[in-house]
């Protein structure tokens, strides 16, 4: 790809829209996952008493185990939402951009 083509694409409003939207989306989701995992790791390291307390009086399930399960489940859920969004929004936007730039 030559420099003028790069410039043209960078300046295209749809490219900006695309990058902005996807950047925000993937950053937000990465943050959710990393925060959940970070909470788990740091909780284990610095707040073991909280992690070992049951979520309800008399229950076996502790906050720690609950966090572990939630991180696993949220990984699957966030991936699902991202895919759903990317297939519907991002790919459409990208196709429009490529068409307007004359690639397809």
């Amino acid at each position: 790809m030559s420099l003028p083509e790069t410039e043209k694409c960078l300046a295209h409003p749809k490219f900006k829209q695309l990058v902005h939207a996807r950047g925000r989306f993937s950053f937000l989701f990465s943050l959710i996952i990393t925060a959940g995992y970070g909470f788990f790791v740091l909780g284990m390291s610095y707040a073991p008493r909280f992690m070992s307390s049951p979520i309800q009086e008399g229950r076996m399930m502790t906050y720690g185990i609950l966090t572990a399960v939630l991180v696993i489940v949220s990984g699957m859920v966030c991936s699902g939402i991202y895919i759903w969004w990317a297939n519907r929004k991002f790919d459409v936007l990208k196709a429009e951009l490529l068409k307007e730039l004359g690639y397809e």
């Binding site: 989306f25 989701f29 995992y37 991180v71 696993i72 966030c78 991202y82 895919i83």
Partner: peptide, 13 residues
């Protein structure tokens, strides 16, 4: 287990 499941979604994003 949790570490693995934290890695994969971020690989995706």
């Amino acid at each position: 287990a949790v570490g693995v499941m934290a890695a994969w979604p971020v690989i995706l994003f």
